[in-house]
């Protein structure tokens, strides 16, 4: 598919089919609207919420939490991952502790984090951090570790310092793998924040969905879910674009 508009159109076929199936199933009353609201009802609610700005507010609250927790995870995950990838001693020192912590599902942290940080911002940021930290760390370590030994020998021939070795050989070599981690972590942090907001929060898109469920406002639940999907796809696209910008040599062939 060389033609760009055509290829975008092609990938829109399946979503269009799903939405039409949804529409006809509810219009023909094949499924009760209590279980699956009509598409036009969801559309109306969505329009209302967008024009009132309430859904944008909910999403941006969740997004700001993601940005804080994710940025922290990127900073610590990439730098510690680099150290652990380059030094066997550092790897040995942290490995057991991290592997143990990694076994705990992120949602299991929520009760504890709420006790520690309350139901406000801090506990959400902490959940996002915990959720996105490990994919970033693991992929950074494996990327650094997979650096071609032949290239490292070249670096040694030119007596590059440890920092120069990192900057000119290890890091660029690990970048594609680091970006896999960043992408994975962003998806997971989106799930984490919504999950955490559903369990304990007074704002955010996850809270809105849970609140609407309690009030039996099912179109609002669907709007929330749609918003999560759309924002997730957009963030994924941003990371993909950033990864292409950061690794220009991968595109020329």
């Amino acid at each position: 598919m060389k033609n760009k508009p055509l290829s975008i159109l092609f990938s829109l076929i399946l979503p269009a089919l799903i939405f039409s199936a949804w529409h006809f199933a509810t219009v023909a009353e094949l499924v009760p609207t209590l279980l699956l609201p009509r598409l036009d009802a969801v559309g109306r609610t969505l329009f209302e919420q967008v024009s009132k700005g309430s859904i944008i507010k909910d999403v941006s609250i969740s997004l700001s939490r993601i940005i804080k927790g994710y940025a922290l995870a990127v900073a610590i995950g990439v730098s510690l991952g680099a150290v652990m990838g380059m030094s066997r001693i550092a790897e040995k020192f942290f490995s057991l502790t991290f592997t143990s912590i990694r076994q705990i599902p992120m949602m299991a942290w929520v009760p504890l984090l709420v006790i520690w940080f309350g139901i406000g911002e801090k506990s959400k940021v902490a959940v996002i951090f915990l959720a996105s930290y490990f994919p970033i760390l693991m992929n950074t370590i494996s990327g650094i570790r997979r650096t071609d030994n032949g290239l490292l020998e070249v670096g040694r021939m030119y007596q590059l310092s440890r920092w120069e070795m990192f900057r000119t050989i290890y890091l660029p070599s690990a970048l594609p793998s680091v970006f896999v981690g960043l992408k994975l972590a962003l998806g997971i942090s989106w799930m984490a924040v919504v999950g955490a907001e559903m369990i304990a929060a007074s704002s955010g898109i996850g809270f809105r969905i849970n609140d609407a469920r309690a009030l039996m406002q099912f179109p609002v639940v669907f709007c929330g879910m749609l918003a999560i999907a759309v924002v997730g796809v957009l963030m994924d696209a941003i990371i993909t674009a950033a990864s292409k910008l950061a690794t220009p040599w991968e595109r020329v062939r």
Partner: peptide, 8 residues
């Protein structure tokens, strides 16, 4: 092998 850095 030429061992050039692919990113440079």
């Amino acid at each position: 092998e030429h061992r050039l850095m692919p990113w440079l």
